[in-house]
């Protein structure tokens, strides 16, 4: 359960990324966030795990206040929120397994993780996460030797290894080709329906959003301009979010999947 009340974020230098946002997301929802770049999508996701501190308002994740929380509380909240990045953000020079085990950092004593002495139970969790995204055969390969799609799956496995209640994905397919994009989106949708993990995804392409999303949130200039069922989205909604009509550039090239 996520509750945002009157959340605003002003960056140093005066840029307002979010303006008085109110939002409630129930457990197990699959929500797609759309908007122009700079509309505040990334900021919204990062407010939820405290990577970007909200300057105003209240943000509660599973009943715990994130805004102004102590470092210890933040670590605790973050340990239950998986995050997936546009640029994957893997430690490329180490193995896939080590990358996925990073999802266990908050649950393992620092001295053990620092020396790579991961407990067997955590290794097992990491293995299962890799199996769920279907690249367990790459366990001992260096992350830099994987393709972009495979790297993003490692990113998803790392988030899964946290055994999260909430999954945040920041433009997870923006760096991938159309076929791989659909596979990754499929993975995320399956994880949401199989495990019931609440999922929040920033997307650029509207057709992907309509294909996989159930609830759509539209942001424009840091303000909430649309929040509703994806089936209700029409050309007017689109114009509201993007400030213009839909064009071919807004949909992902059609491919057989």
């Amino acid at each position: 359960m996520i509750e945002l009340k009157n959340v605003s974020v002003t960056y140093r230098g005066g840029v307002k990324a979010l303006r008085n946002l109110d939002l409630t997301i129930d457990d197990g929802e699959f929500v797609v966030v759309v908007g122009l770049s700079g509309a505040g999508k990334s900021t919204l996701l990062r407010v939820l795990n405290g990577l970007v501190p909200a300057t105003e308002g209240s943000a509660k994740v599973d009943g715990i206040e994130v805004v102004g929380a102590s470092n210890a509380t933040l670590r605790m909240v973050r340990s239950r929120i998986g995050m997936i990045f546009q640029t994957f953000n893997l430690a490329e020079r180490t193995t896939v397994l080590n990358n996925v085990l990073m999802g266990r950092l908050a649950m393992v004593p620092s001295w053990r993780s620092t020396f790579g002495l991961w407990p067997a139970a955590d290794r097992e969790i990491a293995m299962q996460a890799l199996e769920r995204v279907g690249i367990v055969e790459k366990t001992y390969v260096r992350a830099s030797n994987l393709s972009g799609g495979q790297q993003q799956r490692v990113g998803i496995a790392r988030a899964l290894a946290q055994q999260p209640t909430l999954m945040l994905a920041d433009e997870p397919v923006a760096a991938l080709d159309p076929v791989t994009s659909r596979q990754v989106m499929g993975d995320l949708a399956r994880i949401n329906s199989d495990l019931g993990i609440t999922t929040l995804i920033n997307l650029h392409f509207l057709d992907l959003a309509q294909e996989y999303g159930r609830r759509l949130i539209g942001l424009r200039d840091g303000e909430l301009v649309f929040d509703g069922d994806i089936a209700d989205v029409d050309d007017d909604t689109f114009r509201e979010i993007y400030g213009r009509s839909i064009t071919a550039g807004d949909v992902l090239a059609d491919t057989d999947t």
Binding site: D62, E124, E131, V136, E137, Y140, Q163, T165, D194, L195
Partner: peptide
């Protein structure tokens, strides 16, 4: 709430689902 919270079963010998052996 936590979906995968059950204690993980240790992997069967040989490894399920095509798990690779840890390279020496």
């Amino acid at each position: 709430m936590t979906a995968d919270s059950s204690a993980p079963e240790p992997a069967a010998p040989g490894g399920p689902g095509g798990r690779p052996k840890k390279p020496r």
